[in-house]
Design a protein around this nucleic acid. Sequence first.
DNA 1: GTTGAGCGTT
Length: 135
Amino acid sequence: PISSRRRHVGNRTNPNPNNCIGVFGLSLYTTDRELREVFSRYGPLAGINVVYDQRTGRSRGFAFVYFENVEDSKEAKERANGMELDGRRIRVDYSITKRPHTPTPGIYMGRPTTRRSTSPCYSRYRSRSRSYTPR
DNA sequence: GTTGAGCGTT
């Protein structure tokens, strides 16, 4: 008898139905625009997130598609899973992770609260900060 | 236009 109980939140192999689906095994050249063309026929989309590598700026080969309706995401998962896109077999599952946290550079990127453009000292600071390079 | 299992940055 199977005594192990499935967690209500699901796991990596058994994601729960969700508005967001993850698309994996993508070609590096599949863009969000192409994904929109493919997945929009299952229902209205709320958004698409192709995951890019921070260093190279290229796609990491997977993306997240947000549907407005859960039933649409269910159909998309069923029908788009295993389909070929840009010559690659894609895998479609419900997303398990949450939305990405926007990483902060570690330095203050906003505008100064006290702006004194008339100050020559400040203008000198401005010109220097423009050439500032992190790390 | 490398590959290629993966669940999250511009």
